[in-house]
């Protein structure tokens, strides 16, 4: 079990659809331990469906998904529930339970295990909130937080069970560039500390090129290109180039906001 070599996510021949509409066709994926894989693509290309299939919220029409060696399609509800303690998911808008405080939201998965002492729970919750830069927000209700803070809290909640796999749905969408860059850094920091494998679904090009080891471009429900950020950037496929080209154009005009953000570290510290 040496880090980096082992394949922890293995998807073969995945197809999905709603009724007669085909959303995904013949998707193959392999993610190694400790890797950050980004799934990119225009809206409606099937990114979110792919993510939901990966975490077992939806069932595929065809194909198999292995996470950490388990075929998740074959798990019954109870085994799936237990298996899910090994994975974490960050939803687009945080998906915190609105009736609970941020601290209670983080404590929830730990309390549900019913064996972790309250004092340890308090410590883990405090540490995770600090890790995402939200110390002092434990007593707040989710609707008292900004969108970016909610996403961070969602990430903290996904981290409390020390997941081996972490999934993100649009972690930076709807955030200003500076906050988005901060979240990217948090994601990289989580990987550096825990060696966590991550799958990120996004259409934020700047974010994808910052955090990814590997990028998969999904167009019309099929994988159109796959490779390192540099390879994707230089991809000749017209559909991929058209999608990625927007980033090149932005960079050429000096409009890449993330570049600005990276050079004004002090601004981020003030948030």
């Amino acid at each position: 079990m040496t880090a980096g070599a082992e394949t922890v996510i293995h998807v073969r021949g995945l197809a999905a659809g709603y009724g007669s509409r085909q959303v995904l066709t013949g998707v193959d994926l392999a993610v190694r331990r400790g890797e950050i894989l980004t799934i990119m693509g225009p809206s409606g290309c099937g990114k979110t469906t792919l993510l939901k299939l990966l975490i077992g919220l939806e069932r595929p029409v065809a194909g198999t998904i292995h996470l950490l060696g388990e075929a998740i399609g074959a798990l019954d509800e109870d085994r799936l529930a237990r298996f899910r303690r090994r994975i974490g998911m960050c939803f687009q808008f945080g998906a915190l339970l609105n009736s609970l405080t941020v601290g209670e939201n983080l404590a929830l998965p730990l309390r549900e295990l019913r064996v972790v002492p309250e004092s340890v729970i308090a410590m883990i919750v405090g540490a995770r909130l600090a890790q995402v830069g939200l110390h002092g927000s434990a007593e707040n209700l989710p609707n008292e937080l900004s969108g970016g803070m909610r996403k961070r809290a969602g990430l903290a909640r996904a981290l409390v069970l020390d997941p081996e796999l972490l999934f993100f749905d649009e972690p930076t969408s709807g955030l200003d560039p500076v906050t988005a860059a901060g979240l990217d850094r948090t994601i990289l920091d989580v990987r550096r500390r825990g060696g966590t494998t991550m799958v990120v679904v996004t259409h934020d090009l700047a974010s994808a090129f910052t955090i990814s080891d590997r990028i998969v471009v999904l167009i019309d429900g099929a994988i159109r290109a796959e490779g390192s950020p540099r390879e994707i950037e230089q991809c000749r496929d017209p559909a991929v180039a058209a999608f990625v080209g927007r980033r090149a154009a932005a960079a050429a005009t000096g409009g890449d906001a993330r570049f600005v953000a990276a050079h004004f570290d002090g601004v981020r510290g003030a948030q």
Partner: peptide, 17 residues
């Protein structure tokens, strides 16, 4: 409301029925 804001899915992913 919980369903459309992914809260139900979040519970499932945390292994909570």
């Amino acid at each position: 409301t919980m369903k459309v804001s992914d809260e139900i899915d979040a519970l499932e992913v945390m292994g909570i029925n």
